[in-house]
Design a protein around this nucleic acid. Structure first.
Lengths: 208, 208
DNA sequence: CGCTATTTTAAACATGTGTTTGAATTAGGG
DNA sequence: CCCTAATTCAAACACATGTTTAAAATAGCG
């Protein structure tokens, strides 16, 4: 395995677990069993490494997600919000076959990215991968046309919060759930639980 | 104003803005115009300072919140989920009269606390202020008795995610909303938007 | 006032951080 | 095989971090 890949693999797990600020290059390189200087040699800086970790997943995810959402938009029948959010399921779970714990890691990274670093990752994602956002907005609009742009804006961000926060602490939550309810839970199970929640939230009656 | 208070006030704003890991003691003490060593003298360590910042708010919030939720439980009529979540409104907005930007700062701090530091703040809150959680769970159960303990567990954490994530990036979101929709928004407005969303999410049909 | 306890101060400490350097090693094509 | 380019490596750099120290200043009480 190339040094670059070893670094990306180690960084991804550590970033997901302890955040970007909370993970040092020395932790990453010793986990990856490469020299400390390798990060700056191959990626230039820590910030570029963060982008590279995210891009590896986004490049895998975004085409599948865009086409799944696009299919909903092109279909002649009106989708339900459940349909819209279910469209995320296959592309997200595909990350697990792309890489061990891929879904979990990616969603946790996403969660970190929106709170660490004064949200520079939010900027990075929305500017580098705008297609996902527009397709998603269109699909939601088709499913719930009465929702104004402003209401949609807020509800989509609420939804992002639900997902991203849940995933960034999903390890702890799954532990608690397995202890308290004696039930096997995994990421796919959590996602299936969250879909009706966010669908109902977005579909909530409009307040004015 | 006492040195202790000056430190707490400065720390609160900086922590909310840049996270706990992202804020150094030197930033805090220079903002507060006190000596660097004052933090360790008065609070012992940075970690204890974090707890002190949170406690100042929790001690103000938790009795009001507990009694508001308790009132719902003792009432003979069945509350709606909107009632339950609306019970948070007054106690949360009271923080604004307790301190300038109190609501915003507290909710942002809460958001930080659940992602920074491998969630040690989550442990701190749930062990130090358990009454809030049990009262909340009881009120939700009264409003929606069909929800099993496990489903309630997940949906309450989804709800926490919605709130906490939204608030930790509320400044950026409010900026975007004001630009894109030319509408004045503040924290109270966001809270009022989020209540129907989370109420509908928790009230979503049960999947099995 | 005088004296003690509290608080403030500047300085240093020990450690951790991202990054850079220049030499050593390795690969790979001619 | 040889030579050049790419990579690895140990070491050092410059700076930021939380914490501690011991002297100086201040408060508060008898």
């Amino acid at each position: 395995m190339s040094t670059k890949t070893k670094i990306l693999d180690a960084a991804e797990v550590l970033f997901a677990d302890k955040g970007f600020n909370g993970t040092s290059l020395r932790e990453i390189t010793s986990q990856a069993e490469v020299n400390l200087a390798a990060v700056n040699y191959h990626f230039g800086s820590k910030k570029e490494l963060i982008k590279a970790v995210m891009s590896r997943y986004m490049n895998e995810l975004s085409p599948r997600l865009e086409s799944a959402l696009n299919a909903l938009c092109l279909d002649e029948v009106q989708p339900t919000l459940i349909d819209v959010f279910s469209a995320f399921l296959e592309p997200l779970l595909h990350l697990n076959s792309f890489k061990d714990n891929g879904t979990r890691n990616f969603l946790q990274l996403l969660g970190r990215g929106f709170t660490d670093n004064q949200g520079f990752l939010r900027w990075f994602l929305t500017t580098q991968y705008p297609g996902v956002f527009t397709n998603f907005t269109q699909a939601v609009h088709k499913a719930y046309p009465e929702l104004s742009a402003e209401e949609m804006f807020w509800r989509l961000h609420f939804t992002m919060g639900t997902i991203v926060f849940t995933m960034s602490s999903s390890d702890a939550l799954i532990d608690i759930a397995q202890n308290d309810f004696d039930r096997q839970v995994d990421i796919a199970g959590v996602i299936k639980q969250v879909i009706p929640y966010v669908a109902a939230g977005v579909a909530a009656p409009i307040v004015r």
